[in-house]
Design a protein around this nucleic acid. Structure first.
Lengths: 181, 181
DNA sequence: CTTAAATGCAGCACTACTGTAGCAGTAATT
DNA sequence: AATTACTGCTACAGTAGTGCTGCATTTAAG
């Protein structure tokens, strides 16, 4: 692939993720326009709108998968893995703000990958519980949901907080809550 | 208004909220169809699609406002008000699952009301902090965001948990986190 | 410099949604 | 039972997005 083509491709994907996050019904014209290319150029690389969406999803899933791998959720100490995961996933969520859970419904392959990654996190939370890092009286499912939402909140409602500090705050809130001792 | 008309109106609003929550670009045809009325019937009461959306928003805002009033966020003890608010707002969020923050962008009046309600909650969180119920080292803005997300998670990812228990879990998680002591 | 890849532009057919209108039939209210 | 509000149905025009094509032009890469 030619260098300019690669640039345009990346621009379309990133712009697409951004606009689709704001409005999932954003038209391909709008994405093309915002990305600085012609509508037909987008159509040349992505035959259908669905194909473009799939590509955006795959890009996000690729980034997320790298984070999951590097966090070493299975081997590393729970506290370490948790922090590494959060610190890594926040920039991914910011770069690809598109809501995967909702939009991947009609893309079976992407949804399957998403579920696989989700299962890895479930397993990690289960391990954290088994090793006594979580309160025994709350379900891992709830812990998992809370972790997801804390990450999302921090990623998108506090975009100015740098990943390391963001991870500190998320992990601290996750484990200790916000009430005064 | 005739009784059957009122029934249909309510059905359209609730169905609209539900379908629009799943897919914000749901067509009026789809909403009408799912609500069991003809498309033109919806058009008779709501001239434009925007008008229908506004009506859904207003319905949700009305319910939420009632909860805010009854929680007595200003006068009641913080712990009491917090629990009452959460227990009340969860059913509202379940009945009107439409995402207000995102979809009200283009409805100035609804967005204004939403911001007013948001400000009331901000003030409450600020009071909780002032009265020493929250850790002094975290910003009220973060506490507010976390509270919102905990409520949303519980409302939609755990729809089978009854409001009282749901509120217990949300408040407990909010104040104490999920880490083992 | 030459070549081939990639793009912008104009155009066209197709589809889906919106918004409106008229009319006959149904159902709630008195 | 009579009235009137309300609904379903059909039809139509207007708009916007999609997907595709051909051609001239630009631009990266050898």
């Amino acid at each position: 692939m030619r260098a300019d083509a690669a640039r345009n491709l990346a621009a379309v994907l990133r712009t697409g993720a951004r606009l689709l996050a704001e409005d999932p019904s954003t038209s391909m014209s709008a994405i093309a326009n915002e990305a600085g290319v012609d509508r037909t150029t987008v159509h040349r690389r992505f035959a259908t709108r669905e194909a473009l969406l799939s590509a955006v999803f795959q890009a996000k899933l690729d980034s997320a998968e790298r984070v999951l791998d590097e966090a070493r959720l299975v081997e590393a100490p729970v506290a370490v893995a948790l922090h590494r995961y959060v610190e890594g996933i926040i920039p991914v969520s910011r770069e690809w703000p598109v809501d995967t859970r909702r939009m991947m419904q009609k893309d079976p392959e992407a949804d399957r990958r998403r579920q696989e990654q989700s299962a890895r996190l479930d397993a990690f939370v289960q391990r954290a519980a088994d090793e006594g890092h979580l309160r025994p009286d709350v379900s891992p499912a709830w812990a998992r949901a809370v972790l997801d939402q804390l990450v999302d909140s921090m990623a998108h409602r506090f975009p100015e907080v740098a990943p390391p500090q963001a991870a500190d705050l998320v992990v601290d809130t996750f484990l200790n809550g916000l009430g005064a001792t």
